[in-house]
Design a protein around this nucleic acid. Structure first.
Lengths: 136, 136
DNA sequence: CTCGCGCATTGATGTAGATCAAGAAAGCAA
DNA sequence: TTGCTTTCTTGATCTACATCAATGCGCGAG
């Protein structure tokens, strides 16, 4: 469980076909963690995109001492939105939503990572962007 | 925030095109809630599939008094899996995973709801099932 | 029983986005 | 600067799944 003080990190999985899927970005003040059970192997990888400073919490911590329970609720909310979005929106809609929600992140990571976060290929994202910029 | 004592409930959204998307099923001992912010309108609907008994917690409850914080962590884990799955798996893989994970629910709800949970159409689910039963 | 209605199945066709391949730009090291 | 690597773009084709439409199958109400 990492709390980002400065910098930018990402967490992602690699599926059976070897493809990376970005699960979330962690800019300043976000908490990034792999919430897997106590014994099961975690399925997320985490790495650093921009140097910075992290605060690490061991996952053995008893639940009662979770530093910021509100953050958990906010996280649930974000994930809920993400699921609804993955089920009901097109690539274009998802991208527009991402731009609105995380305008700063767009500047800070390569497009292929945004594509990966959105669940589409870099090619598809490129075309979406083109379509949007054409119709101003 | 509902805790299911007996019975079966579901939560779902309705998108702009009027389509329903089942967000989760709530069998015995599950907690179902819409984790939206304090003011924003909730986006989930909840209704009952099998009569039973619910325990209701008002959402104004301060975070510290959340009855079962472990449940929140488990929930995060389930949602994490769901997101990864929506991004990386085909309809068939998602269905197989669902069957393994919730074998009982399959018996209890109509297929169209399972399709909706998986993010596919009932027709597509029907074909997936046919394909699976053909190759034994 | 039988009528009606929601659910499941099946087929034909459409489409968003994936995949493959090849260039063009943009970093970045030396 | 030059060259090398990585990212972005563009086009052609392919495929999983959606959509539309028709048919069959329970099942509950009358």
């Amino acid at each position: 469980m990492y709390k980002v003080k400065r910098g930018l990190i990402r967490s992602y999985t690699i599926d059976e076909k070897g493809k990376e899927h970005i699960y979330m970005f962690g800019p300043e003040n976000w908490i990034v963690a792999d919430y897997c059970g106590p014994q099961e192997p975690c399925q997320l990888y985490i790495d650093v995109l921009e140097d910075g400073e992290l605060e690490v919490t061991p996952k053995e911590l008893p639940v009662e001492e979770i530093p910021d329970p509100d953050a958990l609720l906010r996280r649930l909310q974000v994930m809920q939105n993400r699921i609804v979005m993955l089920m009901s929106s097109t690539a274009k809609e998802r991208y527009e939503h991402f731009v609105q929600t995380y305008p700063d992140i767009i500047q800070r990571v390569p497009q292929k990572m945004i594509a990966s976060y959105l669940g589409i290929t870099p090619e598809a994202l490129s075309r979406v962007r083109k379509a949007l910029s054409n119709r101003e």
